[in-house]
Design a protein around this nucleic acid. Structure first.
Length: 428
DNA sequence: TAGTCGGTCGCTGTCCTTCA
DNA sequence: TGAAGGACAGCGACCGACTA
């Protein structure tokens, strides 16, 4: 099945992101033309203004703003293009129909790759609608894409697309919030999404789970051995790879806790020794909260190895303001994406080494889907049977013990921990 | 020309806060 | 106390600029 030809349906649409909260609306002539085309049958300009006013409240939180813009934009396009009326005329039945559409949108609304909404036009600085853009995207599973790339087979184009329960729940939450806003503004009397009985039937509840996101002991053994082998083959490039893999695993780090944040750039000072001689990794975690993670002796060995490859003293000195990770050209600091790429190359090499050793597809397949976050899940799930809940909770940076308990103490499978977590990184 | 890097985008999941 | 709501992060992809 080939990708659907660009539809005129989406030749123009409201581009909320381009509008800062203080800017004038309708500044893009394509948006103006689109809205004018809908008038007077649909009060599109009024709908557009209400939507922009709602989004304005979230302008200070970039990731939240992005999520909200995506969902209300879909709602707006669905009202206009599928229902043919204003979003202010939405009934409970319409709201249910929209959720149903969100769960399984028409394939002409679904793209096979993420595209920019607008691309450069002929005039300098002009933005024109990207005909390849679609409101929904379906990329398929990572493991399937990787396997297709390895075998040289074309990637499968899905004939149907269903969003996950998580995404659908987010769509519902945001639409509820949008109509609550319209009610507070005295624009509407009722919220049609609040009128839906048992909205949970649209998205089945699921306990938090790391199932399928943990490397089994054999896969982890291949990953760490591959990282060491890569470091041996090309120390200049891959001592860094080895250190990144080991530190993400050993300290249960989220990628941002190694890459840094806009207001925090990790240096060697992140490794600190207390008065008792114990070492800690001090980072800034989710929500901008500082946390200290205990550093084991084995990780210290890898830290020394990595530092010596950079011609530094074996252990960090007080006040040493050297970036923790360097780009290949020696410039300081790696972005989260660069770290992901480094880890992904290691995973890819581990898959090849498993194949070369004649390992079966069943042993290999889930490693294709692995990402940096799997190292955090893997390490924590190996450690859960061996460490007190409170201790693991603090190192993971969870505010509530129930989060740690629900994720790691409910989901540990016996086969993952035949003898509990080895404090040794290498297990094979 | 190939590799690196960063901007942008949308999907999915995590996890904290609020509320009944 | 559990569910719902909501903020936020991780991730993979495309694409263009830059550079060795």
């Amino acid at each position: 099945m080939t990708a659907p030809a660009p539809q005129p349906l989406f030749d123009t649409h409201a581009r909320f992101l381009a509008l800062s909260p203080s800017s004038l609306v309708f500044e893009n002539r394509f948006v103006v033309r689109f809205l004018n085309k809908l008038e007077p049958e649909i009060p599109a300009k009024s709908d557009y203004l209400h939507t922009r006013d709602f989004l304005r409240d979230y302008a200070g939180w970039e990731t939240t703003y992005k999520a909200y813009r995506i969902q209300v934009e879909r709602l707006l396009l669905w009202c206009w293009l599928k229902k043919g009326s204003s979003l202010l005329k939405l009934t409970r039945e319409d709201a249910e129909a929209f959720l149903g559409f969100c769960r399984e949108p028409d394939m002409e609304w679904v793209g096979q790759a993420v595209r920019r909404r607008f691309i450069a036009g002929e005039e300098p600085g002009e933005l024109v609608p990207n005909p390849q853009w679609r409101p929904y995207e379906s990329l398929g599973s990572k493991a399937a894409r990787k396997l297709a790339d390895e075998t040289g087979m074309p990637r499968q184009t899905p004939e149907h697309y269903k969003v996950t329960a998580s995404s659908l729940k987010q769509a519902f939450t945001i639409c509820c919030s949008f109509y609550d806003f319209l009610v507070r503004q005295n624009t509407l009397l009722d919220n049609p999404f609040r009128a839906i009985e048992e909205p949970g039937r649209f998205f089945e509840k699921r306990a938090p789970s790391i199932e399928g996101k943990v490397l089994n002991p054999l896969q982890w053994a291949f990953v760490i051995e591959t990282a060491e082998w890569m470091a041996h083959q090309d120390a200049e490039r891959h001592e860094r790879t080895l250190f990144v893999v080991v530190v993400l695993f050993s300290l249960y780090l989220r990628i941002s806790e190694l890459a840094g944040r806009p207001d925090w750039h990790p240096t060697m000072q992140a490794f600190q020794q207390d008065e008792g001689g114990a070492w800690w990794y001090v980072t800034v975690g989710k929500g901008g909260k500082e946390r200290r993670i205990s550093v084991g002796s084995e990780l210290l060995g890898y830290l020394k190895r990595y530092r010596m490859s950079r011609n530094l003293t074996p252990l960090p000195q007080p006040g040493e303001n050297v970036p923790l990770l360097l780009k290949l050209d020696g410039r300081g600091g790696l972005t989260d994406r660069q770290i992901r790429n480094i880890v992904q190359k290691c995973f890819d090499s581990a898959v090849k080494r498993m194949q070369a050793e004649g390992r079966g597809e069943r042993e290999i397949s889930s490693l294709r889907a692995a990402s940096t976050y799997w190292l955090r899940h893997t390490s924590a799930s190996y450690d859960a049977p061996l460490r007190p809940l409170r201790s693991l909770q603090v190192d993971l940076g969870h505010a509530k013990a129930s989060t740690t308990h629900d994720i790691y103490y409910h989901s540990v499978e016996p086969e993952r921990t035949p003898t509990g977590r080895p404090r040794r990184l290498k297990r094979r």
